[in-house]
């Protein structure tokens, strides 16, 4: 997934799952003032991003983000670092091992 795919996917989530106007969803848009997203929405956003990208995100990081551009940068950063935190729980193991 390249940088533009990441941005497109994030913007699509904001438009479809948070019912925002596509014209509003620009990198400099403020999540709180312009888009009216609050801390409850932040948790929904974490879950939606994790699902879309198969990564694990610390909810506290998202709560600190100010703009749409911050979200773009964070998710791109995760991909560019090459370290994808596992989204799945630890697999069950057999007893006796």
């Amino acid at each position: 997934m390249d940088a533009s795919d990441v941005i497109r996917t994030i913007d699509r989530i904001l438009v479809e799952d948070f019912e925002l106007d596509a014209e509003q969803v620009v990198p400099e848009a403020s999540l709180r003032e312009d888009l009216d997203l609050d801390s409850l929405d932040a948790v929904d956003l974490v879950v939606a991003l994790e699902k879309a990208f198969g990564i694990r995100i610390d909810a506290k990081v998202v709560e600190k983000m100010q703009t749409v551009g911050d979200i773009h940068a964070y998710v791109r950063g995760v991909f560019e670092s090459g370290e994808f935190p596992a989204a799945a729980p630890e697999p069950a193991r057999e007893a006796g091992k």
Partner: peptide, 11 residues
């Protein structure tokens, strides 16, 4: 419908 966002409902 529409009172809560689709992101919340999906979750």
């Amino acid at each position: 419908p529409g009172v809560l966002r689709p992101a919340y409902a999906k979750r």
